[in-house]
Design a protein around this nucleic acid. Structure first.
Length: 112
DNA sequence: TGTTTGACCACGG
DNA sequence: GCCGTGGCCAAAC
């Protein structure tokens, strides 16, 4: 049910979708770009790179398709990303989301 | 203005 | 399963 977020901006879609990721779940760049049908997963990375300007974007819940915290290097202290995830109950091991397949949250779940 | 570079992914070998 | 390749599209240079 993606309600009209400002669809003028590509970023708003990514941000809006990212905000919908439930606590304790994770999503992937590919899933986001695929659901939005907006080009490439790399753009999601670019969009999230700007997400520092938006305080309420849980960008830590977005990982690559392997469940690896690929973007942690862009976090304030890089360890912050894992800490946020762990504080939500997501287990992190070796910079990877443990039990990633089960914790994965696909955008399809909101399109019902 | 053309080239390079990304918080990536799918595919073929 | 790992590795190299190509594609993707917007910013930065």
């Amino acid at each position: 049910m993606i309600k009209r977020l400002h669809q003028d901006n590509y970023y708003e879609l990514v941000y809006g979708l990212t905000r919908m990721i439930p606590k304790g779940r994770v999503c992937t760049y590919g899933a986001i770009s695929d659901f939005l049908a907006l080009g490439s997963p790399r753009m999601v990375g670019w969009a999230l790179n700007q997400s520092h300007a938006y305080p309420d974007i849980p960008a830590h819940r977005v990982v690559n398709r392997k469940g690896e915290l690929s973007g942690r290097n862009h976090w304030n202290p890089p360890s912050r990303m894992a800490e946020l995830l762990m504080s939500e109950g997501v287990e992190i091991e070796n910079d990877c989301v443990k039990n990633f397949s089960s914790l994965f949250w696909g955008p399809q779940e909101i399109s019902e």
